[in-house]
Design a binder for these strands. Sequence first.
DNA 1: CCACTGACGAGTG
DNA 2: GCACTCGCCAGTG
Length: 111
Amino acid sequence: MASPSVSRPAIYAAVARIPAGRVATYGQVARLAGISGHARLVGYALSALPEGSRVPWHRVVNAKGEISPRSNGLGHDRLQAVLLRREGVWIDRTGRLSLAAFRWRPRPRGT
DNA sequence: CCACTGACGAGTG
DNA sequence: GCACTCGCCAGTG
């Protein structure tokens, strides 16, 4: 349940800004979407994404740097790991990736 | 209108 | 570093 449509467009737009090979946290996306502090809403919005959407939802991970397990039972969490790996983002055997190395930094100084 | 539920995050022990 | 609690918003029964 819970298919909130808060600022879905804003959230999707923020997620769409994440470059391949990089990841962003829900909180980070929320901040970019203009709803900082509402990381949950980001997750809810992404959960409502249709399978054919062009939104790189797989580039969004939680603050711990791991793929949040979902309950839809469609194995999307597994798919996310595969998609990320395909972009060069390797998940640690503990199920976590190095945020320090793969976290996307919007507006970096220089370049 | 009330209660429960979700792809979360930060703080505390 | 891990486990637990509280806070946030929106939709459903």
